[in-house]
Write a protein that binds this DNA or RNA. Structure first.
Length: 274
DNA sequence: TACATATGATCAT
DNA sequence: TGATCCTATGTAA
């Protein structure tokens, strides 16, 4: 379930359960054996999220200068998943590429696109390719605004491009465009400053809510007849994502879907006029 | 047992 | 644009 909110939440939870401890690190699956060996026994100092990327920082091994300490970089991709266990952990599955064992908590990671050690310059190069993170304090939305105004691609495709801004995935892009009343096929550079301001604000609010709750709930509880977000049934948490052919929750128009930016997007033709 | 599916991204063409 | 990679799960056969 990895959009930006999930990654930031993971960073927060793993900081709380593992940071400050010397960890046992290994790779039961065998594809990260060497990297794991370099980290084994070292103190995890912090875990940071940027968009959909995770960075794990470690105390320097004996004799090594701190600024050459390698950083563990993880990107979950579409399938990556962490499992966290308190106390006794079950045996790792066949696909567990990384296992971190702390004093009380063990995490297993499987299915990730990227599990690698990077140097600080390598991390900088990676970050340099990314747009602002709506979940980071001090994010500069004007950078995303400028990137959009340079694009001829549709806003729906641009929101998935992590060079524009980071953290949005296929669910949030469909949902925030619905909430903003923007048609996904609107050319990105035609989005007005006022529309962008609303869109950025929605993105920040939605990602923050998702980070806190661990789930994507974009519907206004009143639209599905309940009192609070936490009471929204799992089948009614979104307005348009994967709801093609169903009636819009606001106006009952049939939701449509099509390919956009290489993925499927859905929208309400009435609430999101072209 | 097989297949379809999934909230991602990269690389080749 | 299409192929490819990564894993787990649910449903169909």
């Amino acid at each position: 379930m990895p959009e930006g909110h999930t990654i930031h939440r993971l960073a927060r939870l793993q900081r709380a359960s593992l940071a400050g401890q010397a960890l046992s690190v290994d790779s039961p699956q065998g594809r990260f054996v060497q990297g794991a060996a370099e980290l084994d026994g070292r103190v995890l100092t912090t875990v940071q999220a940027y968009g959909k990327h995770l960075f794990y920082r470690w105390g320097a091994p004996r004799g090594a200068p701190a600024d050459e300490t390698e950083v563990l970089h993880v990107h979950l991709g579409l399938f990556g998943r962490f499992r966290s266990f308190t106390g006794e952990a079950p045996p790792p599955t066949a696909g567990t590429r990384l296992r971190l064992v702390g004093d009380d908590v063990t995490v297993h990671l499987a299915g990730a696109t990227t599990v690698e050690l990077v140097t600080p310059p390598g991390e900088e190069a990676l970050r340099a390719r990314l747009g602002p993170d709506p979940l980071s304090r001090g994010a500069r939305p004007e950078e995303a605004r400028a990137a959009l105004s340079r694009r001829r691609s549709p806003i729906g495709a641009a929101l998935l491009d992590q060079r524009v801004l980071v953290g949005i995935g296929n669910v949030y892009r469909a949902e925030v465009l619905f909430l903003a009343g923007l048609h996904p096929d609107r050319p990105a550079r035609d989005v007005t400053d006022a529309e962008f301001a609303v869109l950025w604000d929605l993105i920040v609010r939605q990602l923050r809510a998702g980070e806190r709750s661990g789930r994507i709930v974009t519907v206004d509880p009143a639209d599905v007849g309940v009192r609070s977000r936490s009471r929204v049934p799992s089948s009614e948490r979104v307005y348009v994502y994967r709801r093609a052919g169903l009636p819009c929750r606001r106006c009952a128009t049939t939701i449509t879907s099509w390919a956009s930016g290489g993925r499927t997007i859905s929208a309400c033709p009435t609430c999101q006029p072209r």
